Amino acid sequence: MMIIAQVLAVVATLVIIVRLLTFRRRGCRHRPAVAFAAWGVIAISTATLERLLTGTTGAWWLTALLVAIAVLVIRAGGNLADLVRILRLHRRH
């Protein structure tokens, strides 16, 4: 069972990294703070991926968290500013 969790976590982490790296602004403003946050998410995701691939981490809670983050990043189109906006709107309702 733990192998399934690790594979799902690796896939979710790769989705997060690739989607953030392939984000195109298409007319959106450049926000240095959001760009730095995206860099941080990519760095943390890469470190998590390394730990998953070496077998030092692997739990269902981590898999669930990574899948949820991957879904949110995909939903926001890789735009962290939109992701924050989606989370704020969700919190208000």
Rank of each mutant, 00 (worst) to 15 (best):
A43W: 10
L87V: 01
T56G: 09
N79R: 00
G40S: 04
M2I: 07
L62T: 05
V73F: 01
I86Y: 14
L14W: 06
L20D: 09
I17R: 00
T48V: 04
L49M: 10
E50A: 08
N79I: 00
R19K: 15
G55S: 06
C28H: 14
R91F: 13
G40P: 00
A43G: 07
H30S: 05
T57N: 01
Q6V: 14
T56F: 02
R24S: 14
L62H: 11
A38P: 07
A5V: 08
A47G: 12
H90V: 12
P32N: 08
G55V: 04
V73I: 09
V73L: 02
Q6A: 13
L21T: 12
G27F: 10
L87A: 13
H90W: 15
T22M: 11
I4M: 13
I44T: 11
P32D: 12
A81W: 03
A59M: 04
R85M: 13
V15L: 06
V34K: 00
A33F: 08
T48W: 10
A81H: 08
V41Y: 02
W39E: 09
M1V: 03
T13D: 06
I74R: 02
A43R: 07
M1H: 06
I44W: 11
V41L: 07
A12K: 03
A33E: 15
L53Q: 08
L14M: 09
A43C: 05
G40M: 06
R85I: 03
H90M: 10
L14D: 07
T56M: 10
I16D: 01
V67D: 01
I69H: 07
R85P: 06
S45V: 02
L49V: 00
